[in-house]
């Protein structure tokens, strides 16, 4: 997708006027300079992403004992993915988590952006405040959640009781525990949808609206036929980033509920982590990892085409 502008390939030596075919010696120098700039990062990724991925693929063909390679088992670890009931229930929990958090965050964040996209005092302060949840250490938020959701005298239940209601068994009931995690994720990531949508809205061309208003367009029509189509690429991008990030969820369930009660909030990554580093079943954990990677790649592939235009202009 990237076509570097031609002039950027101009050789540093002004003697070579023709950028397409510099003198052979010049060309070699240029190639070497290019390499020095790009190769450190390329090698870095080869060493710390590509190699580990290949190594994970290799491990996925073996069974392990006491954390050491035991024997070659072929595709057996991948076969287990289809028969492991625990994995299936954890995948289901993760899907519920992803669907509900991302849906609420998208709707709420975009609605807030539409509502607050107007001239008003203190908008910069508001935006600064909205970035705070994004950078609040997730484990710390989950840990703090233990006190906020506390059933006996946490602030939420105290408030509910003051209104005459019954305290909610936040962390001891399987459904409520998942809801508790979903609420924290919504707290943390709705600001992201809000901030990015707001930035998108503020870059929309104002003259379009003025022209439409002259033609008698108003309210809902402006939104439906101007705002929404123009915002579509940004919204698809937000959706992609949120989906990918939500599937990785690990920190908050691990610190808030440890996957409990029972396994009610054991999300996918937590199960894989346990398979690998509690039960030292490295081969099977690697196979699980590839299933998650496959799911994420599927989402990226499905959505990337729609987002391309956002990256195209500058690439």
């Amino acid at each position: 997708m990237a076509q570097a502008p031609d002039r950027s390939t101009v050789s540093p030596n002004p003697a070579s006027q023709d950028p397409v075919s510099p003198a052979p010696s010049q060309r070699k120098l240029e190639d070497r300079t290019k390499a020095v700039f790009i190769l450190p990062a390329v090698f870095w990724i080869l060493a710390f992403t590509v190699f580990p991925l290949l190594y994970a693929l290799y491990t996925s063909f073996f069974s392990f004992r006491f954390g050491q390679i035991n024997q070659f088992v072929g595709l057996q670890n991948f076969g287990r993915l289809f028969t492991d009931g625990n994995l299936h229930s954890d995948l289901r929990i993760t899907l519920i988590f992803v669907a509900s958090t991302v849906a609420v965050e998208m709707v709420l964040g975009f609605a807030l952006a539409l509502l607050l996209n107007q001239e008003m005092r203190g908008q910069n302060v508001l935006r600064a405040i909205m970035t705070l949840p994004l950078f609040a250490t997730p484990v710390a938020v989950g840990y703090l959640g233990i006190t906020i959701y506390l059933e006996t005298n946490g602030p939420i239940n105290t408030f509910i009781r003051a209104l005459g209601g019954q305290g909610i068994p936040w962390l001891s009931h399987p459904v409520w525990a998942l809801v508790a995690i979903i609420i924290i994720d919504i707290w943390q990531w709705t600001p992201f949808v809000f901030l990015v949508s707001l930035a998108g809205l503020q870059s929309l061309p104002q003259d379009l609206y003025e022209a439409a208003e002259v033609d008698g367009g108003a309210g809902w029509q402006l939104f439906r036929y101007i705002t929404l189509p123009l915002m579509a690429p940004v919204l698809w991008l937000i959706l992609l980033l949120r989906l990918v990030e939500a599937f990785k969820v690990f920190d908050i369930p691990t610190s808030l509920t440890l996957g409990g009660p029972g396994r009610a909030t054991e999300v996918y990554s937590l199960y894989t982590y346990r398979t690998a580093l509690r039960f030292f079943d490295h081969g099977y954990a690697a196979a699980q990892g590839f299933l998650l990677l496959f799911i994420v790649m599927l989402i990226v592939t499905l959505l990337y085409g729609r987002i391309r235009e956002l990256y195209q202009e500058e690439a």
Binding site: F51, S269, T272, A276, A285, A286, G289, F290, L292
Partner: peptide, 9 residues
């Protein structure tokens, strides 16, 4: 890339 994929290697 989900980090849990590469945590084992």
């Amino acid at each position: 890339l989900p980090p849990v994929v590469v945590v084992i290697p």
